[in-house]
Write a protein that binds this DNA or RNA. Sequence first.
DNA 1: AAGTGTTGCTAACGTGTGTTAGTTGTTTTA
DNA 2: TAAAACAACTAACACACGTTAGCAACACTT
Lengths: 197, 197
Amino acid sequence: MARIKTEKNISRKDVIVTKAAALFREKGFKAASMRDLAEAVGVEAASLYNHIKSKTELLHELCFSVANRFLHKIDEIETEQISSIQKVEKLLRFHINEMINHYEEVYVSDREWKHLADPYLSNFQNQRRIYRKRFAAIIETGIRNKEIKKIDAPTAVLIMLHAISGIESWHRSTQKISAEELEENMITILVGGLIHR
Amino acid sequence: MARIKTEKNISRKDVIVTKAAALFREKGFKAASMRDLAEAVGVEAASLYNHIKSKTELLHELCFSVANRFLHKIDEIETEQISSIQKVEKLLRFHINEMINHYEEVYVSDREWKHLADPYLSNFQNQRRIYRKRFAAIIETGIRNKEIKKIDAPTAVLIMLHAISGIESWHRSTQKISAEELEENMITILVGGLIHR
DNA sequence: AAGTGTTGCTAACGTGTGTTAGTTGTTTTA
DNA sequence: TAAAACAACTAACACACGTTAGCAACACTT
């Protein structure tokens, strides 16, 4: 009888959630079936339900664990005594590293949250909206201090966050530059722009 | 008997494809059912098949019509006698306007192409890869001419293209800045960067 | 070694899916 | 106005899906 292998401190549920992230990323939440997931885990579909409540529960867990990591980080950054530009850069670097190191979870949280069911859906959307407002507030402070150009802050946030989700393409490309190079390039372009002066 | 209304030069198939774009954008390709689509069109599900071959055909049409518009544009821009930065800006403005004015089709083409079936899938991926290489080539020329900073061109392309897909959030936000403002802000940030000099 | 909870299995249910067949009604053509 | 082409309908099929019930095998405690 095939058992789900676990190492210490990793529950069988964690194994399932992790495999689910990879699967949802690859196929999309709706297109990924519980039978697919079972195969990836090495078990029959019904057996999954000894560890999880439902397919959507997997999505909840993924989306909110990612969202919470970002919320904690912005909590931390807001209180630091550094310039706005430095705050923006720090937040961006965190996003970039999350996308590099926890690719599948972050990607799924970003693209598949639409398939959450209420009340989780509204909750998630709220968190997201608030997070973006706080990000925009940092930028607006920077504009008032003349560190940052006079731009529409929400638009800037939208550009930054979506630009980072492009790391998806980096992950899948065959000729990758290193993670460090990627990070530096993204910061250069997003913060400093394209034009050579 | 409920008939699909058409105006001149718009076939019933076009009506279906357009409604499909809106539906696929809202729910995702997999989650959108033919019965949903039928309801949006105002007809029974089976009736759709008098006009289309299959559900995936709808996705093909959407993806490739969008892809072709971008390919034509880059053909045009490549031959122009302007600086690399100007070419980049022109291409970006085209992307932005496509995203503003043909939101649903562009969005679906961007996010749902994974659900294409071979040989369409490989075909689409190829076109996409080639398009990005041509975009990167423009940037590399700019770098050699010292118009553009020494950055990794593929990374720059990835940032630009994904940043633009963020216009999705603009579409759904309640307090929108105008389309013109959006365009100018995006160009400012993407081409000129964040830092005030 | 016995007992107990855990984790797996098989079988199956109910529902929703894309799609086809066959028919009826409507518009266009001759 | 009759015939031909088109576009809608109802009914149904075959299949894949998420999930549950009931039972068997394993692992750990005492």
